[in-house]
Simulated scan of single mutants.
Amino acid sequence: MSAVIEKLEQLAERDAVLAPLARSYAAALRLLSSLSGTAIAVLLDSADRLTSGAVPLLHGRTIAADLGALRQLAGETTALLVRDGIPEASTLYEAVARDRLALLELVQAAVCADQASLERLAAATPAADQLVAVLGSVLAIPVLAGLARNSAPVSPTHWRAGYCPVCAAWPTLAEFRGLERERWLRCGRCGSGWRFPHQECPFCGNSDHRRLGYFAEEGKQDSQRVEICQECRGYVKTFATLGPWSQGEILLHDLTTVELDLVAAERDYRRPGGLGYPLAVQIVARDLAA
């Protein structure tokens, strides 16, 4: 984890545009790695059930989160945003410092991709909606990653949806693993991975090879490509790997290949917004949980 954090910090030093996200991800991963086995969040009900159909593991669950750890991460993240000169970051920093931002509500809204709640929280700060949403997504990373690591694993052989079997997010990227080049979709929010068929769009399920394709830099098509679907105009960045990447590596590779996102956008392909499933969770303070 420390090597990835260092690479994120180095990326922030050489790329001013990516610096705010790179440093924020580094802060979230640093907190996650410093907990020494103590989870920042736990499920208050049993985590050993495998959901049937396409229902993510966290749907309908109550999560108890360490509010002190979230305050620490929120303070560090907003201070970094101020340092990087992000407009209105100082307003958000003051709201966090003076405890005027309901962090548990923010994390819950981010986990559920509840846009209305995110806008309400931003209005109460006040700070830009997008800035509050970024803070929420950063705070959600250690919460979701901790839950994914400490919950009973969802067997990839029993999961057929294109969204994450734990937190319902659309895949951040895909891996072609090993010599067999098995296709695995990976979630950047919680770090989960699940097998998914070749020649099938994870977003709309299209499996007509005539409406699927990819583009890649010349000579790199076997190691790095962008897989596209002409039905829904979705895309997923795909990389050849020897084995599964860590969550930090997922976030790092997503940031360092942003040029592929720009090319995809120029060709009118996009990542879907929101979640793949209407996730509903409740987040409460861990020290107040029964």
Results as ranks from 00 to 15, higher is better:
Arg177Gln: 15
Glu119Gln: 14
Arg270His: 14
Glu249Cys: 06
Leu8His: 06
Ser117Phe: 01
Gln282Cys: 01
Glu9Asn: 09
Cys190Lys: 00
Arg160Trp: 09
Val82Gly: 03
Ser46Phe: 01
Leu35Thr: 12
Pro197Leu: 11
Arg49Phe: 13
Glu200Cys: 05
Arg149Asn: 07
Asp268His: 14
Ile283His: 03
Leu58Arg: 02
Leu18Phe: 03
Gln224Tyr: 01
Leu73Met: 13
Ala69Val: 00
Ala16Tyr: 05
Arg98Pro: 00
Leu18Val: 05
Arg177Tyr: 10
Arg14Glu: 12
Gly273Asn: 13
Tyr214Lys: 02
Gly274Ser: 12
Gln221Cys: 04
Val284Ser: 09
Glu249Tyr: 01
Leu106Trp: 10
Glu259Asn: 05
Thr157Cys: 02
Leu32Cys: 07
Pro165Cys: 07
Asp114His: 03
Arg83Gln: 06
Ala16Asn: 03
Arg149Cys: 06
Asp129His: 10
Val107Glu: 12
Ser90Lys: 13
Arg186Thr: 09
Glu76Asp: 13
Ile228Met: 08
Ala109Arg: 06
Arg286Gln: 13
Leu118Arg: 08
Arg177His: 15
Leu139Tyr: 05
Ala69Arg: 04
Glu6Thr: 14
Leu288Lys: 09
Val236Pro: 11
Val132Arg: 03
Arg181Asn: 07
Phe176Ser: 08
Arg195Phe: 10
Glu227Gln: 09
Gly243Val: 15
